[in-house]
Write a protein that binds this DNA or RNA. Structure first.
Lengths: 233, 233
DNA sequence: ATTAAAAGATGAGCAAAGTCATATTTTAAA
DNA sequence: TTTAAAATATGACTTTGCTCATCTTTTAAT
């Protein structure tokens, strides 16, 4: 089923780099995009592929992951509605260095490559928003580097849970992470073995910091989790 | 001693984001910048500081490093002539999250903040170049993440040496890295203890992969070093 | 030139985290 | 619904790499 979302009515757009575009602009943008849906697990684009357009997430959750030297997956970014996807390769004139895979059923629009590159340079507010988006992603990546370099696995697993919270938020109960990742995916984000991720999650579960129910993770004690993550704030 | 470099005659500019600016533009740019020199070890800007301008490196070598949760330094980027510095905070409207420290005597120009932000949005070629610059830095950071997550310390130390080569190149002998870092700095880049960095460098030295003379590192066997780094190419 | 301080080197012991094996549970497919 | 496959869980063992201690060398300051 292919929904054709209209940019003018798109809720996700409000939080996106396209938030400042006016009604006329939205009409044109809408004519230069098409919509696709991806089932959970489906590949949106893959490593070494050539970017043909800019992906703009309408709804759903997507992971950006690359394959390490020994074939192990590394999750680099987590993406949600309103986020743009595949901009790095597009802007660099590069091939993708990541796979984009739907974590749940997702609805994604593709903006024509040349049109996007044109308006990105013409529309100052859009340009500014893209600058900010890349800069923020760079900051996030560099924080990940510090964490991987200097924290132990326990701290990193705790930090990851808080990161998932910051990215996707909670469900209605205000406690349960609204993203469901496998233990292996958590490990692939944290930079550890699946077994270690499992062990530490069980430990947090035993310590009543979190509550595990299948893939659902409820954060019972955010303060203790923050301390466990060795975060100051 | 303060040299006033003229942008029109600046060699570093050729490899910078400002490479496409025409003669008239350079004249104006030149009027919106001032030059400063920094001695080895001097701080150019520091964590939590507010960006007042864009730093543009004329010559020298600079490290961008942040302080981890337990006070340990993490080197995030290595910067050379032609590179811009402090653009992330400037563009994000953020404070610096890194310290910039001269690795050797360096000459740096500061472009007025508002002027830079203005031309960054007006000049399409400049805008495109900045997009590319941030995107490339993001890619580098994400490669660093994969390395930290998935490689052991031996591989990472080898990879770091190749990265130093890629960034700063060799001296005239075509073998000696043209950057001199302390063992501690290498460790702070690699994400390991100083002792481990020392041990592995000695090992590579014994295995005739490299040759150590004080802080000078000569790469004797690049192929073996590449293999040791677990890199394919 | 002398001395203090910093950086580099190296060994021993220990702790963290990875691997491997196996059991159990959950999920998906037939 | 049954069965196979995948995911989760847990224990035992091993390895990697960190910490601590000590010593040497280099660098910088007086």
């Amino acid at each position: 089923m292919v929904f054709e979302h209209n940019c003018a009515q798109c809720n996700a757009r409000i939080n996106s780099v396209f938030s400042s575009i006016d009604q006329d602009g939205l009409k044109v943008l809408n004519e230069h995009k098409s919509c696709t849906t991806f089932k959970k697990g489906q590949v949106i684009f893959s490593e070494n592929g050539l970017p043909l357009g800019l992906f703009c997430v309408h709804s759903g959750k997507i992971k950006l992951a690359t394959t390490g030297p020994d074939g192990k997956e590394q999750i680099l970014r987590l993406v949600k509605g309103g986020d743009i996807l595949g901009y790095r390769a597009l802007i660099s004139g590069d091939r993708y260095h990541c796979n984009a895979i739907a974590l749940e059923d997702s609805s994604v629009c593709v903006v024509d490559k040349n049109y996007f590159l044109k308006i990105a340079l013409e529309d100052k507010k859009l340009c500014q928003a893209i600058f900010k988006k890349i800069s923020d992603d760079l900051k996030t990546a560099e924080e990940h580097i510090v964490s991987l370099s200097q924290k132990n696995v326990r701290e990193r697993v705790a930090e990851a849970l808080l990161f998932f919270k910051a990215t996707y938020g909670f469900e209605q109960d205000n406690q349960t992470l609204s993203v469901q990742l496998s233990r292996e995916e958590i490990a692939d984000f944290v930079g550890t073995s699946t077994e270690s991720a499992i062990r530490l999650l069980s430990e947090f579960n035993n310590d009543k910091i979190i509550e595990l129910t299948g893939k659902k993770i409820k954060i019972l004690n955010p303060d203790k989790l923050t301390k466990t993550a060795n975060l100051l704030y």
